[in-house]
Design a protein around this nucleic acid. Structure first.
Length: 851
RNA sequence: GCGGGUGUGGUGGAAUGGUAGACACAUCAGACUUAAAAUCUGAAGGGCUUCGCCCGUGCGGGUUCGAGUCCCGCCGCCCGUACCA
C-alpha cells in the first residue's frame, strides 16, 4: 500500500455502496410495466452460521439477479428461512433453552452474515416459516386441501425407539439402533396424516415433459421415483381356504415370468400373515424379529432375505401349486403386499430360493447361448429379445416388453387377472411427533371425529411453555394446549398433537414470497404477476423430494384457488449447483462411536487433534454438515478480504453444477487479483495518452470479452466468465491503447464484473465517470463486426495426429487449402512422396490428411 | 440393494466428435530492493536420441479420417433412497 489513493479498502468501499443501494432502494421489487424476472435460491435452514455453500449458492443467484436486472427485467429476488426442524429441538435437549429462541437467534446471526455479501435481495419480503403469520396461512392451506380431499389419514410405519418411547427420524437410526438410547429400533404402525400425492402421479409424470429448462438428470430421477409400470394383478386361489381367506392377490410387473414362479411371498404385515400369526407363535416371533431395524428402503433392501414357510399352498393357473412364505423383503406399502417369486429372473428371489431350497425354473434364456441360471439371475433389459421356454402363448424369440403386454392380454382373456398401472410413488406422510413444526389444525372429538379448526381461529399457535427434558412430543403432555372444546359440538376434545413435516413449509414458500404479508396464503394479483419462478437454484440433493413436493403443492394450490392457472409447474428453469464438500476429521470414543472435529481443532501436519493428541482419520470430500463438524466459516474471508473476494472466489475455478472441495488456499490470490483490477482502474483514471493504433485491438478484445462473459452467465458457466475476465484484465493491463480507449475498456470491465463483484464494480464505474449505479447501467452489447476475424489458423493432422498448422484467410476455398496442406513441409515429410488416401477439410476448424 | 451423477498436470479446472491442459492456484527463474514483503516479467503434463519424436483425460474393449467427448463392460468417489434439511 505505497500508493495511498490506489488503496483497495474493501471495508470502506463495500459499506459505502451497500448504504447507497439501500438508500436508493435498488433491490425492492414492485409490480411494474417492465417484464418481470423471479430468481430464487433455495432458502436456508438457520443452523447457526452461514457456511461457504450458502455463499456459493446465493452468489450464483445474485449473479443472475443482477445480470437480468441489467438486461431490463423487473427482478424479484427474495430471502427467507426454512426455520422449523429437528436441530432446534436437539439443541434444546442438549443445552436447554427454547427452539424458538435458538431459531430466531440463529436467523439474526445469519442475516447479519449475509447482508455484508452485498446480495441484491429485497429484504422487505423476508420471513421465517416458524413465524405464526406464515404457518397460520399454511394451516389455512391445509384445511382447504382437507376439504378438497387432498389430505387423509392412513396407517404408516415409523421407527420406534422402545427405550425412549419415541419416534425416530431415519438419520437418528444408526446401524438399526436409536442414536441416544442405543436400543434396537422397531418398525411400528401409527395412524398418520398424508397428502394424496400419488393421485397426481400421472400428471406429475406428464408435467416433466414440459420442463425443458430443467436438467435431464433431475427429470429422469423424478420419473424413476414416480415409477410408472403396467403389470398384472391376479389372485392365486389357496389350495385350502383358511382364516376367512380363499386367495392371495398379487401384483407383478413381470407376468411374463409366471411359468418360472416357484413361491408366493407375503409381507409380515399382510392380513393373512397377521391372521396366521395369531395362532402360530413361531410365525408371530418371526414377524416380531424381522420388524427390528429402521424403515429406510436402503435398510430393507440390504437386510438379509428371510422367510417363514406357512405350510399353505396356492394353485398356479399354469398348473401345479406354489408354497406360501412370509418374507421380510416384501413391502405392504407397494402393490398388494404379496408377490410371486420367480428366482430365475430376479436376484432377490434367487437368493431366497437358494437359501430355502426352492425350485429355480428358467422362463427364457439368451438367444445366443441359452444356459440355465446358476447363482446369478438372468435379468436382461425388457427391450432385449430372448428365447422363451414353454410360454403359455408359445412365444419363441421376443422381447420382455412384448411378452409382458401379450401375457396381460392373455391373462385378461382367460380371466386370470387384470392389467393395471401401478406407481412406485407413495402418498406423502406429513405427520411428525415433534414440537417444532407447524401444528396440524384439527381437533379430535369423541362424538364428531376429526374436526377441522375454524379458519378464524388460525393460526393454531405453538405454546411457548414447553420443556425438552424427556423424550417425546411436548405437545402431547401439554394439557392446557392439548385439551380444547370441539369446534363443532363444543364438548371436550383433543387437539391434534402431530405437527407437519418441514417439507410442507418449503413446498409453497416461493408462492408466499410474491405477497409475504397477505392475509390469505397468496394474493391473486401479485401471484399472477410474479409467478412462476423464472430461475430456481438449489442443491441436487433436493432433486426428488423437495422439488416433487413443490410441484404437487403448486397443483394443490391451483385446485384450492390459491394460485392462478399456469403455475402447475412453478419453476420454469432449474439449476442444481454442486455442493461444497470438505474432509471430515474423525476419531472414535470408548464405545467406538465416531467423534468429529472442526478443521481448526486439528493439526494436519501431525494428523492429531490439538487438544488431546489423538490421531484422527480423514474422510475425504464429504457433504458439509454441522453434525460432522466439517463446515467452513466464510466470515473469516469476508473479514480479511471483503465480500467481493468471497464472491469472486466461489464463482471461479469450479463449474457451478459440480461439487467443490473447499480449501483455504486461493482466497488470498483472488484478493490479489481484485486489488490489481482496482489499481489498474486508478492508473487508467489518471492516464493521459493519445489515441493510437492499439485502440482498435483493445476494442476488439472488449467485444470478445462481452460476448464470452455473457455466454458464460447465460449458460451458468460462471467459472468460464471469470476466466475470460482474468484474460481481459491482462489484455487491458498490457494494452498500449490511448487513454480514452482504455477508459472505455475499463468501463466495460466494470460492467462485466458487476454481477460478481458489485462493490468493486461500482467503485470503478464511479472512478471512470460512469453515470449513476453500474447496477442500473444497461448490460453492454458486443458489436458483431468486432467479433469477426479475417484469418483463421487451422491445425493440420496426418492420420489424426497434429503435425503442423496453417494460417489462411477466413474464406479461403477448400481446393486452395488442400493445396497449401499438401505443400506443407511436415505433411510432405510424412507422406514421403506417396499420394494421400483422403483429405478431410472441416472449414474453419481442422484439416486431416489420411496417409 | 436400487436410482442419478462424476473421474483430465502438483492443485481447481478448459475443450459444438476436430491443436488436450485455456484461465487460475501452488512451484521455479529473472527484474526492482541494502534485504524482505509487495509488485512486475517469464518458464513449466511426463519422457526421449529435442529443427523432431513417443506417451498421456480412472481401467479394459469398440465405432470413426479423427474420441476427454459416442457405444459396451468394469473400478473409485459423490448425491438420493420417502422422519436430515
Amino acid at each position: 500500500m505505497t500508493d495511498a489513493p490506489a488503496a483497495y479498502d474493501t471495508t470502506a468501499i463495500e459499506a459505502k455502496w451497500q448504504a447507497a443501494w439501500d438508500e436508493a432502494e435498488l433491490f425492492r421489487a414492485d409490480r411494474s410495466e417492465a417484464p418481470k424476472y423471479y430468481v430464487l435460491e433455495m432458502f436456508p435452514y438457520p443452523s447457526g452460521r452461514i457456511h461457504i455453500g450458502h455463499v456459493r449458492n446465493y452468489t450464483m443467484g445474485d449473479v443472475i439477479a443482477r445480470y437480468k436486472s441489467s438486461c431490463g427485467f423487473n427482478v424479484l429476488h427474495p430471502m427467507g428461512w426454512d426455520a422449523f426442524g429437528m436441530p432446534a429441538e436437539n439443541a434444546a435437549m442438549a443445552f436447554g433453552g427454547h427452539p424458538k429462541d435458538w431459531t430466531y437467534d440463529n436467523i439474526a446471526v445469519m442475516r447479519g452474515q449475509m447482508k455484508p455479501l452485498g446480495l441484491s435481495i429485497d429484504w422487505s419480503r423476508e420471513f421465517a416459516t416458524c413465524d405464526p403469520e406464515y404457518y397460520g396461512q399454511q394451516q389455512a392451506l391445509f384445511l382447504d386441501m382437507l376439504e378438497a380431499g387432498l389430505v387423509y389419514r392412513k396407517p404408516a410405519i415409523v421407527n420406534w425407539d422402545p427405550v425412549d418411547m419415541t419416534v425416530l427420524a431415519n438419520e437418528q437410526v444408526i446401524d438399526g439402533k436409536g442414536w441416544r438410547s442405543g436400543a434396537e429400533v422397531e418398525r411400528k404402525e401409527l395412524t398418520q396424516w398424508a397428502f394424496a400425492i400419488s393421485d397426481m402421479a400421472e400428471d406429475l409424470l406428464a408435467g416433466l415433459e414440459t420442463l425443458d429448462k430443467w436438467p435431464d438428470k433431475v427429470r429422469l430421477m423424478q420419473e424413476n421415483w414416480i415409477g410408472r409400470s403396467r403389470g398384472l394383478q391376479m389372485t392365486f386361489p389357496l389350495s385350502a381356504p383358511t382364516h376367512g381367506t380363499d386367495g392371495i392377490e398379487v401384483y407383478t410387473t413381470r407376468p411374463d415370468t409366471l411359468r418360472g414362479a416357484s413361491f408366493i411371498a407375503i409381507a409380515p404385515e399382510h392380513p393373512l400373515a397377521r391372521a396366521l400369526a395369531a395362532d402360530d407363535p413361531d410365525l408371530a416371533a418371526f414377524a416380531v424379529d424381522v420388524r427390528k431395524g429402521g424403515t429406510t428402503e436402503e435398510a430393507l433392501e440390504k437386510a438379509e432375505k428371510r422367510g417363514f414357510d406357512t405350510g399353505l399352498t396356492v394353485d398356479n393357473p399354469l398348473g401345479g401349486t406354489l408354497p406360501v412364505w412370509v418374507a421380510n423383503f416384501v413391502l405392504m406399502d407397494y402393490g398388494t403386499g404379496a408377490i410371486f417369486g420367480c428366482p430365475a429372473h430376479d436376484q432377490r428371489d434367487l437368493d431366497f430360493a437358494r437359501k430355502y431350497d426352492l425350485p429355480v425354473t428358467d422362463t427364457f434364456v439368451a438367444v445366443s447361448d441359452g444356459h440355465p441360471v446358476g447363482d446369478v439371475a438372468f435379468v436382461p433389459p425388457k427391450t432385449e429379445a430372448v428365447r422363451w421356454l414353454n410360454h403359455p402363448l408359445d412365444l419363441d424369440v421376443a422381447t420382455g416388453q412384448h411378452a409382458i403386454d401379450a401375457t396381460i392380454d392373455w391373462a385378461e382373456a382367460e380371466g386370470i387377472g387384470t392389467g393395471r398401472v401401478q406407481y412406485r410413488l407413495r402418498d406423502w406422510g406429513l405427520s411428525r411427533q415433534r414440537y417444532w413444526g407447524c401444528p396440524i389444525p384439527v381437533v379430535h372429538c369423541d362424538d364428531c371425529g376429526v374436526v377441522p379448526e375454524r379458519k378464524e381461529n388460525l393460526p393454531v399457535r405453538l405454546p411457548d411453555d414447553v420443556t425438552f427434558d424427556v423424550p417425546g412430543n411436548p405437545l402431547d403432555r401439554h394439557p392446557t394446549w392439548r385439551d380444547v372444546a370441539c369446534p363443532a359440538c363444543g364438548k371436550p376434545a383433543r387437539r391434534e398433537t402431530d405437527t407437519m413435516d418441514t417439507f410442507v413449509d418449503s413446498s409453497w414458500y416461493f408462492a408466499r414470497f410474491t405477497a409475504p404479508r397477505a392475509e390469505t396464503p397468496t394474493d391473486h394479483d401479485e401471484a399472477d404477476y410474479w409467478m412462476n419462478v423464472d430461475q430456481y437454484i438449489g442443491g441436487v440433493e433436493h432433486a426428488i423430494l423437495h422439488l416433487l413436493y413443490s410441484r404437487f403443492f403448486a397443483r394443490a394450490m391451483g385446485r384450492t384457488g390459491h394460485l392462478p392457472q399456469g403455475t402447475e409447474e412453478p419453476f420454469n428453469a432449474l439449476f442444481t449447483q454442486g455442493m461444497v464438500t470438505h474432509a471430515i476429521y474423525q476419531t472414535r470414543d470408548a464405545k467406538g462411536r465416531p467423534v468429529y472435529h472442526l478443521p481448526e481443532e486439528v493439526d494436519l501436519d501431525t494428523k492429531t487433534v490439538k487438544a488431546t493428541g489423538e490421531t484422527f482419520e480423514i474422510i475425504p470430500s464429504a457433504k458439509m454438515s454441522k453434525s460432522k463438524k466439517n463446515v467452513v466459516d466464510p466470515m473469516d474471508i469476508i473479514a480479511s478480504y471483503g465480500a467481493d473476494t468471497a464472491r469472486w472466489f466461489v464463482l471461479s475455478d469450479s463449474p457451478p453444477e459440480r461439487d467443490v472441495e473447499w480449501t483455504a488456499a486461493g482466497a488470498e490470490a483472488t484478493h490479489k487479483h481484485l486489488r490489481r483490477v482496482h489499481r489498474l482502474a486508478t492508473d487508467i483514471a489518471r492516464a493521459d495518452r493519445a489515441p493510437n493504433a492499439a485502440d482498435a485491438d483493445l476494442a476488439k478484445a472488449a467485444a470478445r470479452a462481452i460476448h464470452e462473459v455473457t455466454e458464460g452467465i447465460e449458460g451458468f458457466a460462471f467459472n468460464k466468465s471469470v476466466a475470460k475476465l482474468y484474460e481481459f484484465t491482462a489484455t487491458l493491463h498490457k494494452s498500449d491503447a490511448g487513454a480514452d480507449a482504455r477508459r472505455d475498456a475499463m468501463r466495460t470491465l466494470a460492467q462485466l464484473m458487476a454481477p460478481m463483484t458489485p462493490h468493486l464494480a461500482e467503485e470503478i464505474w464511479a472512478l471512470m465517470g460512469g453515470e449513476g449505479f453500474v447496477a442500473r447501467a444497461p448490460w453492454p452489447k458486443a458489436d458483431p463486426a468486432l467479433l469477426q476475424d479475417d484469418s483463421v489458423t487451422l491445425p493440420v493432422q496426418v492420420n489424426g495426429k497434429r503435425r503442423s498448422e496453417i494460417t489462411v484467410p477466413k474464406d479461403m476455398p477448400k481446393p486452395e487449402i488442400e493445396a497449401m496442406v499438401l505443400a506443407d513441409d511436415a505433411v510432405q515429410r510424412i507422406l514421403d512422396g506417396a499420394a494421400p488416401k483422403k483429405l478431410i477439410v472441416v472449414p474453419g476448424r481442422i484439416v486431416n490428411v489420411v496417409a
